[in-house]
């Protein structure tokens, strides 16, 4: 079932329609744990983006080689390989930031979002759509992490990307780790609310101008 997928379609699908965190609610561990500042969120988001794109491409290329019955173990091996690669590269070249997210980078292996994309999309599609699907999902994940990180860093420490916005900590509570849950819960509700309004608006437009 190789359908017609455009680049734009894949990107918006990953960022809005099937946003891994706000809509699919998959792989939320890092979204809660490391998002008390944007920098961590961006680093981890980029790592996920890389792993998603690389595994999507690999699986898509090997989709006729991998035996049907061992596809899940094979996917896991492929993901684990790319995760180990990015893990070693980050540890070597950005040691300072890596220290804070080290455990979570290794845990990308078991992120449900990646394997589910391989199973749902990459193993049935050609290289190019798979690549863009990976980019879309990765960017969607990055987008969600940055959103949560932005809200928490601004409210918790009064800074954005380490730059001071207000000279004090407005709501100290938001830097505490449990606030990650609240931030995601609230943003998720916001996402749903905006989407509903948008749909209603579209509906109305259709009715006015049939």
């Amino acid at each position: 079932m190789e359908g017609n997928y455009t680049v734009l379609n894949r990107l918006t699908n990953g960022i809005f329609k099937e946003n891994p965190i706000f809509k699919l609610a998959l792989s939320m561990c890092p979204a809660v744990a490391v998002t008390n500042n944007i920098r961590n969120g961006v680093l981890l988001g980029l790592a996920v983006l890389f792993v998603q794109v690389a595994s999507n491409c690999t699986v898509s290329l090997l989709r006729r080689v991998i035996h049907e019955r061992i596809r899940i173990p094979a996917y896991i091996i492929i993901i684990a390989t790319w995760v180990s690669v990015i893990d070693m590269v980050l540890a070597a070249y950005v040691p300072a930031v890596y220290k804070e997210v080290a455990l979570y980078v290794k845990l990308i292996v078991v992120f449900a979002i990646i394997i589910s994309r391989l199973e749902v999309f990459a193993c049935r599609n050609k290289l190019w759509p798979s690549f863009w699907d990976g980019v879309g999902m990765g960017v969607g994940f990055l987008f969600a992490l940055v959103m949560v990180g932005f809200v928490r860093e601004l409210l918790g420490s009064g800074t954005v990307w380490g730059y001071e916005i207000v000279p004090f900590r407005p709501f100290f509570f938001w830097s505490l780790p449990p606030a990650g849950f609240f931030a995601i819960g609230l943003l998720m509700a916001l996402f749903i609310w905006v989407e509903k309004k948008f749909e209603a608006w579209q509906q109305k437009r259709k009715e006015v101008r049939p």
């Binding site: 035996h67 061992i70 094979a74 492929i78 684990a80 690669v85 540890a91 070597a92 070249y93 040691p95």
Partner: peptide
Amino acid sequence: IALNLFLISLASAAILGLVFMQTEKAR
């Protein structure tokens, strides 16, 4: 099936070994 899985593991171990040798010194 066994051969298939074995080859995949072998390839990934080889890639990892290469990357490790490249990055370890830099790290």
